[in-house]
Lab assay of single mutants.
Amino acid sequence: AEKTGIVNVSSSLNVREGASTSSKVIGSLSGNTKVTIVGEEGAFYKIEYKGSHGYVAKEYIKDIKDE
């Protein structure tokens, strides 16, 4: 049951290796980017990222929809 969301930041949002603010940053997404959410862990969504997965803070994702 995948969902999509939109990155809701003015600059960019860090994509992390794990569901923690201390996890390594593996990339970033600019505002209004559409993401595919494959799961959630605590305050983070697990998303599809560059052929693999990454984690982003839930508070910066809006317009969550079921695909």
Rank of each mutant, 00 (worst) to 15 (best):
I26H: 01
N14Q: 13
A1W: 09
I64S: 06
G18Q: 10
E67G: 10
H53C: 05
I37W: 02
S28W: 11
S20Q: 07
S28D: 07
R16T: 13
K46F: 05
S11N: 15
R16G: 03
K62A: 15
T4W: 06
L13S: 03
G54N: 01
I37E: 00
T33I: 10
E40H: 06
G42K: 06
I61P: 01
K3S: 07
G5W: 03
Y45S: 01
K46R: 09
N8A: 14
G54W: 02
A19H: 05
T33P: 02
L29T: 01
T4F: 07
S11I: 12
A43H: 11
T33G: 04
Y49I: 03
E17F: 09
V56K: 00
Y55T: 00
I37A: 01
Y55N: 00
E2A: 12
V38Q: 07
Y55G: 00
D63E: 15
T4H: 10
V38N: 04
I26T: 03
K58F: 03
Y45L: 06
V9E: 07
Y45D: 01
K65M: 14
E67L: 09
Y45R: 01
G42I: 03
H53L: 12
Y55K: 00
E59N: 07
E59R: 14
G54V: 03
V38D: 02
F44W: 14
G27R: 02
G5Q: 03
L13C: 09
I47P: 00
S22L: 11
S20G: 07
E48R: 13
I61S: 01
G54S: 03
Y45N: 01
E17D: 15
E17V: 08
N14A: 11
R16E: 01
S10E: 12
V38H: 05
V7R: 02
I47A: 00
E41Y: 09
G39F: 04
S11C: 08
N14H: 13
H53F: 14
E40F: 06
N8I: 11
K65H: 11
S11E: 11
S22A: 12
G31Q: 10
S30A: 14
K50L: 14
G5I: 04
L29F: 04
S28K: 15
D66R: 04
G27D: 02
S23A: 12
I26S: 02
A57F: 12
I37S: 00
S28I: 12
F44T: 03
V35P: 01
E2F: 07
E48P: 10
E41R: 07
V38I: 12
V7N: 02
K50H: 10
V35W: 02
S10Q: 15
V9T: 15
K34F: 10
V35L: 05
Y49R: 01
T33Q: 09
I37Y: 01
E2Q: 13
K24S: 07
K34Y: 09
T36W: 13
T21I: 15
Y45G: 00
F44G: 01
G39I: 02
E2S: 11
F44R: 01
E40Q: 13
V15Y: 02
G42M: 05
A43R: 08
G42Q: 06
I26Y: 02
S11V: 13
A57N: 12
G51S: 08
S52Y: 09
D66M: 08
V9L: 08
K34V: 14
I26R: 03
G39V: 03
K24A: 13
G54Y: 04
H53W: 10
K50E: 15
G54M: 03
I64L: 10
T36H: 12
G42H: 07
K62R: 15
S22W: 08
I26A: 02
K3F: 06
E40P: 02
I6D: 02
V35K: 00
V25H: 04
H53G: 04
Y49P: 00
Y55V: 00
D66A: 10
K65G: 08
V38G: 02
K65W: 09
I6A: 04
V38T: 10
K46M: 10
R16A: 04
A19Q: 03
I47H: 00
G39Q: 04
D63N: 14
S12A: 10
E2Y: 07
A43W: 07
A57C: 06
T4L: 09
K65V: 13
K65P: 10
T36F: 15
I61F: 05
K62T: 13
K62M: 15
K24D: 06
K34A: 07
Y60N: 12
Y45V: 03
S30L: 12
E2P: 10
S23G: 05
K62S: 11
N14M: 15
V35F: 03
G27Q: 02
S23T: 08
K34C: 06
V7L: 05
L13H: 03
V35M: 02
V9Q: 07
V35T: 02
G54C: 03
S11W: 09
I6F: 06
R16F: 13
G18A: 12
V38K: 05
R16D: 00
G39K: 04
T33N: 06
S10Y: 06
E17R: 07
S10F: 07
N8S: 12
I61C: 02
R16V: 07
I64T: 08
Y45F: 10
Y45C: 03
E48T: 11
E67V: 15
V38F: 07
F44E: 01
V9H: 11
T33L: 06
V25S: 06
N14G: 08
K50P: 02
K46G: 02
R16M: 15
T21Y: 12
E67D: 12
V15M: 03
K58W: 03
A57S: 13
G18V: 09
G51P: 10
V15W: 02
V15N: 00
L29A: 02
V56R: 00
E59H: 09
I6W: 08
I37R: 01
S52A: 15
K65L: 10
I6S: 05
I6L: 08
T21W: 11
I37K: 01
T33H: 09
T36D: 05
A1V: 09
Y60K: 06
V15A: 01
E41Q: 09
V35A: 02
V7Y: 01
I47S: 00
N8E: 09
L13Y: 03
V7S: 04
I64Q: 06
A19P: 10
T4M: 08
L13G: 03
F44K: 01
Y45K: 01
G51V: 04
K3Q: 08
G51H: 09
Y49V: 03
I6Y: 09
S11R: 09
K65N: 14
S20N: 12
S52R: 15
H53R: 05
N8C: 08
V15G: 00
D63I: 13
I26C: 04
K34E: 07
D63R: 08
G42N: 09
A57Y: 12
K3M: 08
I61R: 01
E41F: 15
G5D: 02
E59Q: 12
S12H: 15
G39L: 04
G51K: 09
T21D: 15
Y60V: 04
F44N: 03
T21Q: 14
K62Q: 12
S52D: 06
I64G: 06
S20P: 02
R16Y: 14
Y49L: 03
G27V: 02
G39H: 04
K62E: 09
G31P: 12
A57V: 14
K58Q: 06
